[in-house]
Each structure stands twice: as structure tokens, then as C-alpha cells.
């Protein structure tokens, strides 16, 4: 009902004003960033799961034991730490290559 009285923009079809376009543009940008951030977090969780399961649950039994849980807590913290560290190192290297040889930095990013 409400769409008859100017609610058209919400439906995605109408709304051609400059302000409306600005709004939709910002919305789209934000949506893209949120989706990428989610994918990034998802990836980190999957990797933690994979590596920490391997390290901490060496013989899967009928339930997760308390020592396994303690190991998983330590492991996820360490994995996050390693991730931060490596991320820092990688960006440093990309910067360094970019300032010396533009060609090499392209190759570093392409890896």
C-alpha cells in the first residue's frame, strides 16, 4: 500500500534523485565492505579450525576433553597472533618492493 505514495525507492526500481543515488552508492560500498570483511573472518575461522583441530584433537573420542578445549583456546589465540604478524610482514614487504622496483611489487601482489 505504502508504495503507491512514494515508497517506490525502497523497492529498488524508482528513485532517481541525486541524493537518492548518493545514498544507494554509499549503501552499495558499505555492503561490499561488509561482505569482504565477513569472507575474511570466515576464512580465518576455517583456517583456525583446520590447524587447531589437527594440533589439539589428535585422537577424536566421544567428546571434546577439557585438555583439548584448553589446547584449542591457546591455539586459536596463537593462530590469530601469527596471522597479525604475517600480515604486518607481508604489507611491509609489498611496500618495500613498491618503493624499489614497481615490477617486483606487482609480482608480490600477484602471488
Amino acid at each position: 500500500m505504502a508504495s503507491f505514495f512514494g515508497g517506490g525507492a525502497a523497492g529498488g526500481g524508482g528513485g532517481s534523485g541525486v541524493q537518492d543515488q548518493q545514498q544507494r552508492k554509499d549503501q552499495l560500498k558499505q555492503q561490499i565492505q561488509v561482505e569482504l570483511a565477513t569472507a575474511n573472518a570466515q576464512m580465518l575461522i576455517n583456517k583456525m579450525n583446520e590447524h587447531c583441530f589437527e594440533k589439539c584433537v589428535t585422537k577424536p573420542s566421544t567428546s571434546l576433553g577439557s585438555s583439548e578445549q584448553a589446547c584449542l583456546s591457546r591455539c586459536t589465540a596463537l593462530y590469530a597472533q601469527a596471522f597479525d604478524h604475517i600480515s604486518q610482514k607481508y604489507y611491509q614487504r609489498v611496500m618495500k618492493e613498491a618503493s624499489s622496483t614497481p615490477e617486483a611489487s606487482l609480482e608480490a601482489q600477484r602471488l
Partner: peptide
């Protein structure tokens, strides 16, 4: 996003290479 993906891969590779023992509270 591509660079972030590379960081994930590097972390994966380096974790396998460097964290060979059991997990303690600190590296």
C-alpha cells in the same frame, strides 16, 4: 581482498612450517 587472501595463504604455509611442536600458551 587479494592481498588478504595472500596473507591467509602465507599464514597457513608458515604455521605448517614453523609451529611443529605441541601448542603452549606462547610461541
Amino acid at each position: 581482498a587479494k592481498m588478504a587472501a595472500t596473507v591467509h595463504e602465507l599464514t597457513d604455509t608458515c604455521w605448517k612450517k614453523c609451529v611443529t611442536g605441541s601448542i603452549s600458551s606462547k610461541f
